[in-house]
Design a protein around this nucleic acid. Structure first.
Lengths: 155, 155
DNA sequence: GAAGATTGATCTATCAATCTTC
DNA sequence: GAAGATTGATAGATCAATCTTC
């Protein structure tokens, strides 16, 4: 269980006083990092999972056939192919996912949720959605959100 | 050199169609991750450094006395104390920083930039600032930035 | 005994090399 | 030979334990 990673600092040394755009840049990084950190800590405390595990469960739960090829899953969660092998090993050990041979292509492996995996995902999703609501959605008006969308789409 | 980390996916499963706030949430994560990834790749290609190293150099360069206690530096770059020990070992090996005993407190260690460290920092900062300008500042108007600040400050 | 820093154990990510199947 | 997946080597992060100095 990893990718605990980091709050990710602003890495800038522009002068926020001079240009509101520089201040916006710094704020974007700071708030993003702070929210991410709170949400991941909450998820970990409630379920023992980090975002990487949650992300795997999420992608499998949302997949059209409820399963994904290893390489597609690796792309989806943005991890190396070999990193995914180990990750699936651990999650399989924890009883959350299972591997199966792909019929028609004996090179391939499909990963899918177990019943327990689905249960744990739904539990985690409840915690996580509540966190997003609390940390983000409830703090903005619809007008705020529309303005934010318009601006972010320029980036 | 690490913390290559990850683009950090949106981790949500709200319905962006229904609520503009949900769409804003998703967009915030996606754009942030994409920009971060481009900037880090650029920095790495140009200087061989990742953001963690850059962050260390930045904090040392901005420190009032041009130096920081190990524990303060660890807090600043958001890494564990023991993680910092190894990081400073490597950066010292690369000739970028140096350790010195703190006078008055024989428990402590101060870390500071070497001349080479300062040179490499300035080189990296040039690359990085140009990247921020290109990826962020130039894409927003002053009004956009002020709106963004107002909204982000609510979070 | 607490604070500052390091060491050692463990975990997990990446990369390159390998194996199997297409 | 390319694609899919795994293995092995290496690097770096965390946590707990330790050492020194306050």
């Amino acid at each position: 269980m990893s990718r605990v990673r980091s709050p990710v600092k602003p890495y800038d040394d522009l002068s926020p006083e001079a240009d509101p755009r520089a201040r916006a840049w710094r704020l974007l990084f700071e708030r993003h990092a702070a929210i991410r950190q709170r949400l991941e800590a909450e998820l970990r405390a409630a379920t023992g999972m980090d975002f990487l595990w949650y992300d795997v469960l999420l992608h499998l739960a949302e997949a059209p056939a409820q399963k994904l090829r290893s390489s597609d899953l690796a792309r989806a969660v943005v991890i190396s192919k070999s990193g995914l092998t180990g990750l699936v090993d651990r999650m399989e050990g924890a009883g959350l996912v299972e591997r199966r041979a792909v019929d028609g292509d004996r090179r391939g492996v499909e990963v899918s949720l177990t019943a327990e995996g689905r249960r744990r995902f739904e539990e985690a999703a409840g915690v996580h959605r509540a966190g997003i609501r609390r940390e983000f959605l409830e703090k903005l008006t619809g007008a705020d959100a529309r303005a934010l969308i318009r601006i972010l789409e320029k980036l």
